[in-house]
Simulated scan of single mutants.
Amino acid sequence: MRRCGRSRQPKAIPLIVLFLEYTRGTAEVPEAPTWLFAAHAGPTLAKDSKESQRRPTGRLIEFLRNLAIFSIKDAVLIQNADVPLQADRPFRVMAGDNRDREFSGWQKALDELVKIPGLIQEDTVICFANDTFIDHYGDTYLSWFDQSGVREALCQGKAVGYVDRSLKPVSLFGLTTDRWLRTSLFFIRWAELKAALPLRLPVAESEIFSCEGESLFLDRGGADGTDLASPHLSPNLRASLDRWLWAGPVVAGEFDRVWHSAERLSDESRPRLQQKAKCILIERLLSARLLQAGVELQNVRVSSRRWGGLFALADRCQLLEPAQNFRVRAGFTAKEMKRNFKKFLGYGG
């Protein structure tokens, strides 16, 4: 694994930005030509203008500029949406592929960029982002990407982002894992990314999903006693995704979370929910492939910038995950745990 060289003045890390804007709830593929604009779309905006900062592309560039460790070699806005987009410099715009939402769009962009001689080298970092990176979770977590931590992790061949996990390991497509990168924003070098490509499922959807019943997945026994459950997904993974996407039955011993856009499972909602489930599986598979290849996931949730370094300290002492597991099993909310922890440390109410 090649590491970055050390010097008094660290060199800027070459970066390619892939930002995706997509249309939710449709699997339609844009019919526009691949490259829509040679340069940016729309009027030129001052880099610090209020209008630029409000747009996701402007917020992303502002975040990357503040991180101050990258030299942007290319920035591509992938248009999976069916409406005209406004993009700030240095973005250029290409038509995407919305069959697998952001993942098919990103894969199409990568397929195009690798054709450009000399653009992507082994140490080139790819920044993946989509238009939800500040919409659904706020922007507080962006401050957890600290300059030295991100640089060091990337130079060590790690993927960097917000890492989620399950309490128990799950299996998908022959791989077992209990953690994954949240793909709304993450960084990884090309040398490591190649182990996780392509960004698509390795089997047909008909081998995973059911067109009827009280689950999105093939998870039931046949009338003749045969097992029709998909062999590609473990039962606890299928159950947790049913819980997450349409508030299905509670999964014992697991985080009890329901998606902000969950809707009741019906004949009408099933295709939309299965499309979302497919993207979640691709997201999980990406991380599972990286972990199998020996690529560590650097979690910004334990950044030294969070809570004055307390999360980082608890993680180094191997106390963080046991505490989280205890919270779930004891039925405490995260807010209650934080309040009690602050009292224990002698500050806060």
Rank of each mutant, 00 (worst) to 15 (best):
L245D: 02
R243T: 10
L245Y: 03
S230I: 01
P235T: 00
A239P: 00
V250I: 14
R238Q: 12
D256Y: 10
F255L: 13
R257Y: 13
D227A: 06
R257T: 14
G253S: 11
S240I: 15
D256W: 11
S240N: 11
L237P: 01
W244Q: 10
P249R: 14
G253R: 09
P249Y: 13
E254F: 09
R238C: 11
G225L: 06
V251E: 01
G253W: 07
A247T: 05
G225N: 12
H232F: 10
D242T: 08
F255Q: 11
F255D: 08
V251N: 01
S240V: 11
H232C: 07
D256L: 11
P231E: 12
S240G: 07
A247C: 08
L228V: 03
V251P: 01
S230W: 01
P231T: 06
V251Y: 01
A252I: 06
A239T: 00
L228R: 15
L245I: 08
D224V: 00
S240W: 06
T226Y: 00
E254V: 04
A247K: 15
N236W: 00
R257S: 12
A247G: 06
A252M: 06
L237M: 04
D256G: 03
H232I: 06
D242V: 04
L245N: 04
A229N: 03
W244H: 14
L237N: 01
A229R: 14
N236V: 08
A239C: 04
S240Y: 00
D256S: 14
V251S: 03
L245H: 04
R243I: 08
G225C: 07
T226S: 15
V250H: 13
A247D: 15
W246A: 14
G253N: 15
R257H: 12
L233T: 09
W246V: 09
L245C: 06
R243V: 04
A223E: 15
L237Y: 01
H232N: 10
V251M: 07
L228K: 13
G225Y: 03
A223N: 09
R238L: 03
D224C: 05
S240A: 10
L245M: 10
E254A: 09
W246S: 12
T226W: 00
L233F: 09
S234I: 00
R257L: 12
S230L: 02
P235A: 13
P235M: 09
A252Y: 02
W244V: 08
W246N: 11
D242H: 10
W246P: 00
A229T: 10
G225I: 04
L228T: 11
S230V: 01
E254C: 09
G225S: 12
D224H: 10
